[in-house]
Design a protein around this nucleic acid. Structure first.
Lengths: 88, 88
DNA sequence: AACTATATTGCCATATATGGCAACCTAACC
DNA sequence: GGTTAGGTTGCCATATATGGCAATATAGTT
């Protein structure tokens, strides 16, 4: 077994995006911020629409996007992506 | 001061991509793997060309790409992105 | 010199993240 | 009822990550 079925790969991707998205949402809400509040704290421009898509796992955000979200939420990049401790 | 000059934003992005890229390269070489070895260990298909581009900071990888690289290198996603401890 | 392994760069095509806006949906108000 | 805040979804355009291959570079070895 060296390969992974394509559908499995899609499931792995979907789970990852959902887990990270939920983690972002959890941290944002812990800080008492709305999605709009978040984008106003982000470096540069960002569309609030995409926050919803990222938090719900519909988008596969880039490294730079994740970095700007982490900064806006006042957490480190590793913290933002560490969903293992929060009960997956 | 609420905004960031566009050139500053580009510099922040460039530095981030370079730091994470170097971290990936460092971990890969510590494990004694070539770029080709890395892609063969990654889930699904990945082009070796893009490993070079990511390690040199020319590409802004997606979350799923970072996840697959982390898995192939046998480190956690937070570890892969934690370049702060390694001397920036 | 030649050969091999590894990495970089360039080019083009495709897939998709993001920008931007409008419409819609709840829930909580008055 | 209406209004507001927050979030979602749909649509389209643009930017760019990735796929894929070829060419080049570079270092190591014989």
């Amino acid at each position: 077994m060296t390969s992974v079925k394509e559908s499995d790969l899609d499931n792995i991707r979907a789970e990852l995006l959902k887990n990270v998205g939920k983690n972002i949402q959890r941290i944002r809400e812990q800080k008492g911020l709305s999605q709009f509040d978040l984008i106003t704290k982000m470096l540069g421009e960002f569309d609030v629409t995409n926050v919803s898509r990222i938090e719900s796992g519909r988008n596969n955000p880039t490294l730079f996007t994740l970095y700007r979200i982490a900064k806006a939420l006042d957490v480190s990049l590793p913290q933002l992506l560490d969903y293992s401790t929060t009960g997956k």
